[in-house]
Computed example of a mutant assay.
Amino acid sequence: MIDILVPYEQEGTKAIVRSWLVKVGEPVKENDPLVELETDKVTQEVPAPADGILDAILLDTDAEATPGALLGRLRPADAATPTAPEAATVEAPRPAPTNERPAPANWLSPSVRRAVQEHDVDPAEVTGTGRGGRITRTDVERHVAERAKAPEPSAPPPAKSGGVTSVPHDRMRLAIARNMLGSVTTAPHVTAVFECDFSAIMAHRKAHKDAFAASGANLTFTAYFIAACVEAMRAAPAINSRWFDDRLEIYDAVNIGVGTALGDKGLIVPVVHGAQALSLLGIAQRLTDLVVRARDGKLSGGDVSGGTFTISNHGVSGSLLAAPIIISQPQSAILGIGKTEKRVVVREAGGVDTIQIRPMAYVSLTIDHRVVDGHQTNTWLSKFVETLENWPLA
Rank of each mutant, 00 (worst) to 15 (best):
T220P: 03
G72C: 07
L320T: 07
I135S: 02
Q356S: 14
F225M: 10
T66S: 15
V6A: 00
R370M: 07
Q376E: 14
I327E: 03
E125H: 13
R173Y: 04
T138D: 15
R286Y: 04
M202C: 10
R113S: 14
I334Q: 00
L74P: 03
R18L: 12
V126G: 00
V164I: 15
N390A: 13
P67K: 06
D120N: 13
S364H: 07
G182L: 10
S328W: 08
P153K: 13
K29Q: 14
T138Y: 12
T340D: 05
T379H: 04
A284Q: 01
P158R: 09
T340C: 12
H273K: 13
F309M: 00
L278K: 15
I16P: 00
V193C: 04
V385K: 11
R18I: 06
G338Y: 02
D289L: 12
L381R: 06
R75W: 05
F194T: 03
A145T: 12
L248D: 10
R295E: 02
Y251R: 04
L381W: 00
D353A: 14
S364G: 07
P359A: 03
I355N: 04
R131V: 10
P270K: 02
G72P: 00
I2C: 11
T310E: 06
E125V: 11
I367W: 08
D353N: 15
L365P: 01
K23F: 09
S317N: 14
L388V: 10
P168D: 09
A235W: 01
P95V: 09
S364V: 04
S161I: 13
T129K: 01
G133C: 02
E91K: 12
V316M: 12
N218E: 12
P324Q: 07
